[in-house]
Design a protein around this nucleic acid. Structure first.
Lengths: 227, 227
DNA sequence: ACATAGGTATGATTTTGGTCATATTTAAAT
DNA sequence: ATTTAAATATGACCAAAATCATACCTATGT
């Protein structure tokens, strides 16, 4: 059971839970589970009946799906503040994606029943859920277009820029999210060797620098111009 | 103004409007606009403030997005019964996609205000909207994986199978949706010549037959096995 | 019926990206 | 600290798909 209380948790301001009335939050506090995951841990798997949502308090994860060719595609990255499993809860279906921690995470699990109470009683909450799904859908549609129309090199450049904007950099300017070359390949949908090759090229061109897995963007404008 | 009444319209059973209470339907009837579009007509464009939703009574359309390389990607096809513009309405944003009729269409336009009244008063309506967005999101995620991981040939085979299942065939077994080779290319995200070449190959292999633009699937199992 | 534009078809060639092979480096486990 | 596995790097080669070129259909309007 949770130590902290949902009413006092700042992270809920980042997602639809911000619209829950205080009595609903008290209900949540009483039945939530605080979990922690280490890098590489699986939060849930494609096909799991998750029966609730996960609120990311700290850390980030990748949402992947296994393709029929045996490769895992990373469909998107989720950051602290995001709610996972909304879609499955709403559709009343098993998870369509697998969630894997990309660094150490603290997560609250909120059981389905409690959330459902929220959205029959709180119209603002369902409106917020609608908005967040609508946003996810828009982003997904845009990814479809990028996948279909842009080169691997451009997709990889845009991925670096995306991570820079959405996850930021540390004191040394290194991207806060640390991914393997294989992860990068699975985001842009290419072979691992191709991702490695292109990142090496970006390094030679001075667009990025790499210290092991840690990447620093050296030339944002240059990356934006990659075709 | 509409001739028929929303209360008596069967097509709304196919989408979230089925959950509107009868008084809300009467309100809609009073302010809806019945439109018709011919093949190739634009219902709305990416960037338009559509200020309402479109309910497709008859016909089908393609939802496209212009990529930075100047090509139009077909993100999905929408059939009779579907509601267009839900996402924009919810996000309160301009349309992210362009809708173009692929055959003759009859469509009702339902203004935003009226729909919004529906979802503050009718919890079932917002739940249904949530479910339909959730479904769209799941499909979009699956398309991302397919785009990233499958060959052009496989994507084209799956597109034919998708159209077969979702739009059906006429008395002669020809697919009900008639698309140009260019449209097929823009669905799977390839060059027009590549789409033409692969369809020719499918013809030679006896998987399909083509009578001008009209396509008939001759060997469903064969198409399913295309890699 | 004829002209015309848009769509289909196919060949030749180039480019992009995938696969296979093999080092080398880095990180994790004992 | 040493071993081991995993991740990175790079070359060589191959396959898939894009591009360029050209020709031929087939609807459409005049």
């Amino acid at each position: 059971m949770g130590i902290s209380k949902c009413e006092q948790c700042a992270i809920r301001q980042c997602n639809a839970l911000k619209s829950l009335k205080s009595y609903a939050l008290v209900g949540l506090s009483g039945c939530k589970t605080s979990l922690s995951f280490k890098k590489g841990d699986v939060l849930f798997q494609e096909g799991d009946n998750i029966n609730g949502v996960f609120c990311i308090k700290q850390g980030a994860c990748k949402l992947t799906k296994l393709s029929s060719n045996g490769k895992d595609q990373i469909v998107r990255l989720a950051n602290a503040g995001e709610l996972l499993g909304q879609r499955s809860l709403i559709s009343n279906e098993p998870a369509n994606l697998t969630a894997i921690a990309v660094n150490n995470m603290r997560v609250c699990f909120l059981p389905k029943q409690e959330i459902e109470n929220g959205f029959t009683s709180d119209i603002d909450f369902s409106v917020d859920l609608l908005k967040s799904l609508a946003q996810e859908l828009k982003l997904a549609d845009n990814v479809i277009v990028d996948m279909a129309q842009k080169s691997v090199k451009k997709r990889l450049a845009e991925t670096l820029l995306y991570i820079n904007v959405n996850f930021g950099v540390d004191a040394d300017g290194l991207l806060n999210i640390v991914l393997t070359r294989d992860d990068y390949a699975n985001i842009v949908g290419t072979a691992t060797e191709s991702a490695i090759r292109i990142l090496s090229q970006f390094k030679k061109e001075g667009l990025i620098s790499a210290h092991g897995k840690k990447i620093k963007i050296e030339n944002i404008e240059g990356l934006k111009c990659v075709e």
